[in-house]
């Protein structure tokens, strides 16, 4: 297949990408996926899963050891200059000039991308209005949420075709997190492809499609609904007054596939469907009190853990 001449419809193509640091640390192994134009694609996984490495390779900041990657049809190694002019990139930690004001930062990034704030103001307008009252304030003096908004504005100011966001919501309070995702939704409507990474499993449901990633391997790629429905074991939420003993006891229950704490409950996945009464009786026999058992809806976390244990 000679894909250098083929018109590409995918915004991001990744094929068998591998990367290792030093001798032992395999950051990515044989990762492949595609992101369609205008898609909001989530890269979900814990720290050290390889999310940052992957995003940096796509941002042309790292070279892969093996495999291919294209952004907007450009090859990441050869066409890095083109990619750099046309993507917006927001690194994992706050990477703006703390001693420059909001306005100065934005003006700086607009200018180095050869554009002006005016030219693309329409794109950042929604976000920038929230920053406007603080435009003379130094970036270092903004709250976490505001910093993220400013960083997003700076990454957007040149109207990129693809936006690469590395853990934009890490360490940000829940309110700002929610607002940030609302902004991403609106950007998506403006035909910008967005690849966003996050360690928060609950953010998966806000993406069009997600890749679950762990130790450099992609565990699954699907729509959030698809990932959850792929969890095919019967799932119950159980609680009693003694959480710690409950977990131990449930793991010893013969029909148990797995038992993990989920907030106030323990999620008990079963090998086979059995009556909740049987579990009730089992727990009562173990002298548990305040027993409560109800069917549970699997979450992305259930699915993720299931995939992890299958590995």
């Amino acid at each position: 297949m000679n894909d250098t001449t083929m018109p590409t419809t995918q915004a991001i193509q990744v094929e068998s990408l591998s990367k290792r640091y030093g001798k032992n640390a395999q950051a990515l192994s044989q990762v492949s996926f595609e992101v369609g134009r205008g898609e909001l694609f989530g890269l979900i996984g814990p720290d050290g899963a390889g999310k940052t490495t992957l995003i940096r390779i796509l941002a042309t900041l790292l070279l892969a050891d093996e495999g291919q990657a294209r952004v907007n049809g450009w090859e990441v190694r050869r066409d890095y200059r083109k990619i750099r002019s046309h993507i917006g990139y927001m690194p994992g930690r706050f990477s703006l000039y703390q001693d420059l004001s909001v306005e100065e930062n934005l003006h700086f990034f607009a200018t180095i991308f050869g554009t002006t704030i005016k030219e693309n103001y329409e794109l950042i307008h929604d976000i920038y209005v929230q920053l406007e009252p603080f435009r003379k304030r130094k970036a270092g003096k903004l709250s976490g949420g505001m910093k993220q908004k400013l960083a997003l504005c700076c990454a957007l100011i040149h109207k990129p075709v693809v936006l690469l966001l590395d853990e934009p919501t890490t360490g940000v309070d829940p309110v700002s997190r929610q607002e940030f995702w609302e902004m991403l939704k609106r950007l998506k409507e403006k035909d910008i492809t967005i690849l966003v990474s996050t360690p928060y499993m609950d953010e998966a449901s806000l993406c069009d499609r997600v890749a679950l990633i762990q130790k450099g391997n992609i565990l699954s790629i699907d729509e959030p609904g698809g990932i959850v429905s792929a969890f095919d074991k019967p799932l119950l939420a159980v609680r009693t007054n003694d959480m710690y003993r409950l977990i131990q006891d449930l793991r010893e229950f013969e029909s148990a596939h797995s038992a993990f704490p989920f907030g106030e409950y323990v999620h008990l996945a079963l090998r086979n469907s059995i009556w909740p009464e049987a579990i009730h009786a089992y727990l009562a026999g173990k002298e548990h009190t305040g027993i409560e058992i109800k069917p549970a809806q699997a979450t992305i976390e259930d699915a993720f853990m299931e995939l992890m244990t299958q590995e």
Binding site: D47, A49, M201, F260
Partner: peptide, 14 residues
Amino acid sequence: TGGVDPITRRQFWE
């Protein structure tokens, strides 16, 4: 916690 995988996180809570 924060940033660890869901299984490790649960081991921690246990």
